[in-house]
C-alpha cells in the first residue's frame, strides 16, 4: 500500500496493494499456527499462481516442514485493513534441521560473541 501522494514506481503498473498484475503471480499473506500455538499468526507473504500453490509455498518458505502446522493463505487483495498499525510477524523455529540453530555449533568462549 503506498501513501496517497505516491507516484507509481517507474516501469511498474500501479495497482492497489496486493492486487495481481496481469503478468505476475498474485501476492498472498501467510498465517501459521504452530504445533503448540493457539491461533494463526501472520508470518509474511509470498507469490503463487493460486491459493493451493500458496499453501505449499508457505509450507516450504515459512515452516521448513514443521509437523502439525496449520497454514492459512489469503490473497493480499482480499484483506481489508482497518488500522495503520500491524502486529509483527513472528518467528517459527524449524525443529527438524538441528544445524540451522546456532546452538548446534560449538564456538569456543574465547572467540567472543557469535
Amino acid at each position: 500500500m503506498s501513501s496517497p501522494e505516491a507516484k507509481p514506481y517507474p516501469g511498474t503498473q500501479a495497482v492497489d496493494h496486493g492486487k495481481a498484475r496481469a503478468d505476475e503471480w498474485p501476492l498472498f499473506e501467510i498465517f501459521i499456527r504452530g504445533q503448540h500455538g493457539l491461533s494463526h499468526r501472520h508470518v509474511g507473504s509470498l507469490h503463487a499462481a493460486d491459493a493451493e500453490m500458496a499453501i505449499k509455498n508457505a509450507r516450504d518458505v515459512y515452516t521448513r516442514r514443521n509437523e502439525g502446522v496449520s497454514i492459512w493463505v489469503v490473497e493480499a487483495a482480499h484483506i481489508a485493513a482497518s488500522s495503520p498499525e500491524e502486529k509483527g510477524p513472528l518467528y517459527e523455529p524449524a525443529n527438524d534441521k538441528v544445524y540451522r540453530h546456532p546452538t548446534f555449533f560449538d564456538i569456543p568462549d574465547e572467540v567472543g560473541a557469535m
Binding site: 503471480w25 509470498l46 507469490h47 503463487a48 505449499k56 509455498n57 516450504d60 518458505v61 521448513r64 516442514r65 534441521k97
Partner: peptide, 14 residues
C-alpha cells in the same frame, strides 16, 4: 525459475 521454487527444491534435496 522463481524464488519459492528455489526454496522448495532445496527442501527436497535436504
Amino acid at each position: 525459475p522463481v524464488l519459492e521454487e528455489d526454496i522448495a527444491l532445496a527442501n527436497t534435496a535436504l
